[in-house]
């Protein structure tokens, strides 16, 4: 079979090459090279899973049963029966809103603190060791403390997102600020840029590639943390949905939710990376 495809390809390419440049064909080939391997691996994986979990006594349902059992939530993401009995869309959108709020606050505070740490020798000496210790605390370990402080699940979840994602933002921003070439500082000095102009016109753009690296790590951590935090605080949210499904032994629903969580985490990462690419006009390594 391998021999057959090789021969087939040779036969197909030859007359093409003789006629016109193979622009579209090459582009298609590149696309296929990127898409086909993951699809093949996915198919093999699903097949293996199907075979292994078809056997009696298997702990997990095979993919075919996942689809039939969880068809309700797959087909109706928008239903809303009030309370926490909602479609996946509503759960995910609630989680995303928490992440958006907590992450935005972390970006603002993180970039400002990072600038301070990167710019001032004294602030770095004082704050850096503290940050290095705080950043190793697992996200969920903050939850009891924030529940005690806020006495409410919603702000506590947002705080957990904030405190989880702020460290990589601070640290990367500080590195970016410290790496601003002396030349740029000299240019700013000759022009007599004031502190605000210097921040907006030199520091931010110069440090942007580093800042966006921090943002990418931060948004990934936020998404990790929110799912876990929602399992504990309850209410509407994808984390709670998963926990609720587990309590009702709806394993198929958990699997569907996990697929959504994974895909959305991936999209968030690409979104921040794409934004970084846009903002830094391609100079970022993102």
């Amino acid at each position: 079979m391998a021999l057959g495809t090789t021969l087939g390809r040779v036969a197909a390419v030859k007359p093409e090459g003789a006629r016109r440049p193979l622009v579209t064909r090459a582009a298609l080939k590149g696309l296929a090279l990127r898409i086909v391997p993951p699809l093949v691996v996915l198919a093999v994986f699903l097949l293996l899973w199907e075979v292994l979990c078809q056997r009696p006594g298997a702990g997990l349902p095979p993919p075919s049963r996942v689809v039939t059992e969880a068809w309700d939530i797959i087909a109706h993401p928008f239903y809303d029966n009030g309370g926490t009995d909602k479609g996946l869309f509503w759960h995910i959108s609630a989680s995303l809103q928490r992440v958006a709020l907590g992450f935005t606050l972390a970006v603002i505070a993180g970039v400002m603190l990072g600038t301070l740490v990167g710019q001032s020798e004294w602030a770095m000496r004082g704050l850096d060791p503290i940050f290095q210790v705080l950043r190793t605390i697992p996200p969920l370990a903050w939850l009891p403390l924030s529940l005690a402080a806020f006495r409410d699940g919603q702000p506590s979840a947002i705080f957990v997102i904030f405190i989880t994602s702020i460290w990589p933002i601070i640290i990367n921003t500080a590195v970016g600020i410290r790496n601003i070439p002396q030349d740029y500082r000299n240019v700013a000095a000759v022009l007599r840029l004031n502190a605000f102009e210097f921040f907006a016109k030199v520091m931010l753009p110069s440090a942007a590639p580093y800042i966006f690296t921090g943002l990418r790590i931060g948004v990934g951590l936020s998404w990790l943390a929110i799912v876990a935090a929602e399992m504990l605080i309850g209410g509407v949210g994808i984390g709670f949905f998963i926990w609720d499904a587990w309590n009702s032994s709806h394993i198929s629903e958990i699997i569907v939710a996990l697929v959504y969580v994974g895909v959305i985490g991936f999209v968030l990462d690409r979104l921040v990376a794409g934004l970084g690419h846009l903002v830094t006009r391609g100079t970022a390594t993102a």
């Binding site: 070439p181 030349d183 740029y184 000299n186 240019v187 000759v190 022009l191 007599r192 753009p205 006009r281």
Partner: peptide, 30 residues
């Protein structure tokens, strides 16, 4: 430092995220 003593630096020191025109404009506008 001040703009009445403008410097042409050894390694040009243009800001890489700005276009040629924007680099000059930054100085002129300030």
């Amino acid at each position: 430092p001040g703009p009445e003593r403008a410097v042409v630096f050894q390694n040009h020191s243009l800001l890489p995220w700005l276009t040629v025109r924007e680099n000059v404009a930054l100085a002129v506008d300030k």
